[in-house]
């Protein structure tokens, strides 16, 4: 399967997961809103151009927005994630050969610690920005801070579970290996 087809399928699956499973889930607690759709941006290949990541982030956010009737809310947050992604990857990804032999950011390519930090920073930025935009229209400040922490914890939990369920062994075919 080519990267393009793989990512198109992944886009639809992750939007449906967010919209038809996580959004319609019974109300657990007022602080809990599970978000995982930005994992699509986290899993995009290393070699993809920065501009394309931004455009894909915007499309992803808008498709979630059309279901939740909040045009622009998720789009703004996922564009932010798409913008920060290359910067964070530059911070954590090893500069040696692994980046060449692996296609996508994954625990195998970056190591668990670096990968989790990468996911943590991006999901924190996503949730903080999204909830900030929500908080501007409604809510109290303490509630907002609590919600950022708990939502980020839940996002991280789901990302780790996703990594354990779907171990991606994506290597470039090369004659050295």
């Amino acid at each position: 399967m080519s990267d393009l087809v793989r990512n198109i399928i992944r886009f639809f699956l992750i939007v449906f997961l967010q919209v038809y499973v996580l959004n319609v889930m019974p109300h657990l607690h007022q602080l809990i809103t599970p978000y995982i759709y930005f994992l699509f941006i986290l899993w995009l290949p290393f070699y993809i151009k920065k501009g394309w990541v931004l455009i894909l982030g915007f499309l992803l956010g808008m498709s979630i927005d059309y279901y939740t009737m909040t045009p622009g809310l998720h789009a703004a947050a996922s564009v932010l994630v798409a913008f920060l992604r290359p910067i964070v990857i530059n911070l954590f990804a090893p500069k040696d050969a692994t980046e060449l032999s692996y296609k996508e950011p994954s625990p195998k390519a970056m190591g668990w610690t670096a990968y989790l930090l990468y996911a943590l920073i991006l999901s924190f930025c996503h949730n903080a920005y999204l909830l900030l935009l929500e908080w501007i229209s409604f809510g109290s400040f303490i509630h907002f801070l609590m919600k950022i922490i708990i939502t980020t914890a839940i996002s991280m939990l789901m990302i780790v579970i996703a990594e354990l369920i779907f171990p991606r062994k994506l290597k470039f075919r090369s004659n050295t290996a």
Binding site: L54, F58, G61, D65, T70, P71, G72, L73, V79, S137
Partner: peptide, 28 residues
């Protein structure tokens, strides 16, 4: 170019968000 694209997309999404009428949506 990347930063400018980022700014444009941010402005577009925030424009959608804040011009959207909270209880009555004109179009959509």
């Amino acid at each position: 170019s990347v930063f400018i694209l980022f700014l444009i997309l941010q402005i577009v999404s925030l424009y959608f968000l804040f011009t959207y009428n909270r209880s009555h949506r004109a179009k959509g």
